[in-house]
Computed example of a mutant assay.
Amino acid sequence: MKRMIWTACIMLASVAAWAQESVKPDAFEKGMKQPGVQLLDVRTAKEFSTGHLPDALLADFTKKDEFFHRLESVDKTKPVYIYCLSGGRSTAAAKWMRENGYKEVIELDGGVMAWKQEGKPLSGTEKSGPQMSTALYDKSVASGKWILVDVGAGWCPPCRKMAPVVAQFVKENKVKLVNVDGEHDTHVMQKINAITLPTFLLYKDGKEVWRKEGIVSLEEFKAAMK
């Protein structure tokens, strides 16, 4: 009898743990606002541009190389709240993440569709207005002795991870920073052949002297000026 009770308790605990892996919009919204939570959107960039949850990072699950690369900048020790359009992709992505060391992964049950059905707002609708022109870019990179170009986007996990490093480098070395929006400034992206986010370019006296894609250490930035 005791063994049966113990087995039942284990089963109930397992069900409870499973239930917490996928939550309704109200619980998801409450949970994602906790300190330290990382919010991950696994839809495509086109879907993301039609509206996303506030402060979400983007890692397209349909592009496996991009997905795994961007996950390298997501902290495994902190909670990850994950969603897609209706729940299918986020469930598959969450399963992989749990199996690969991510401590706590919580799914939005029903995805963005359920979120909107509950009347909850989305942010970041597709940008309007002019892009940075290539002429303005040329003028910007020629406007100082040392110029660092940061090609990135707010929804890009490694871009966000690099933000404090870039800020420290610019401050300590009196370097002018030029930001290129990797989602919007497509003309400039084509001109400088930047196809990965983030991409960093260093200019000296108007000429490109160094570039690197992805994560860059403070020491690497400093060494590039020598």
Rank of each mutant, 00 (worst) to 15 (best):
M1F: 08
R3D: 11
I5F: 13
T7E: 12
C9L: 15
C9E: 09
I10E: 05
S14P: 00
V15H: 02
A17S: 14
A19Y: 05
K24D: 10
G31Q: 04
G31V: 02
M32I: 10
M32Y: 10
Q34N: 13
G36L: 07
G36K: 09
L40R: 09
D41M: 04
D41W: 07
V42I: 07
R43G: 13
A45W: 03
E47L: 09
F48P: 01
S49Y: 08
T50N: 14
T50I: 03
T50H: 15
G51T: 03
D55S: 12
L58D: 01
D60Q: 08
K63E: 14
K64C: 00
D65K: 08
D65Q: 14
E66Q: 13
F68M: 13
H69W: 09
L71T: 02
L71N: 05
E72Q: 15
P79C: 05
V80C: 02
I82K: 00
Y83W: 01
C84W: 05
G87V: 04
S90M: 07
T91G: 15
T91N: 11
A94Y: 05
R98G: 02
N100W: 06
N100I: 01
V105Q: 03
V105A: 02
M113R: 11
Q117V: 02
E118V: 02
P121R: 11
P121C: 11
T125K: 13
T125F: 14
K127P: 06
S128Y: 01
G129R: 04
G129Y: 10
P130N: 13
P130Q: 12
P130H: 11
S133N: 01
T134N: 04
Y137D: 04
D138Q: 15
D138G: 03
K139E: 14
S140T: 12
V141T: 10
K145H: 12
K145S: 11
K145G: 12
W146A: 04
W146Q: 11
W146E: 08
I147Y: 03
V149A: 09
V151A: 10
V151M: 05
G152E: 03
G154F: 03
W155M: 02
C156T: 00
P158G: 01
P158D: 07
R160N: 12
K161R: 12
K161G: 01
M162I: 01
M162D: 00
M162A: 04
A163N: 08
A163H: 06
A163C: 00
Q168E: 15
Q168P: 09
Q168T: 14
F169D: 04
F169K: 06
V170P: 10
K171E: 14
K171Y: 02
E172Q: 13
N173E: 03
N173S: 09
K174D: 15
V175G: 12
N179I: 00
D181L: 09
E183W: 13
D185V: 01
T186N: 11
V188G: 08
V188E: 08
V188M: 08
M189Q: 14
Q190M: 06
Q190K: 14
I192Q: 07
L197N: 03
T199S: 15
T199C: 04
T199G: 07
F200D: 12
Y203F: 15
Y203V: 11
K204H: 13
K204P: 11
D205T: 00
D205S: 11
G206C: 04
W210C: 07
K212N: 10
K212G: 10
K212E: 13
E213Y: 00
L218G: 12
F221Q: 06
F221H: 01
F221N: 02
F221V: 01
A224P: 00
M225V: 04
M225H: 03
K226F: 05
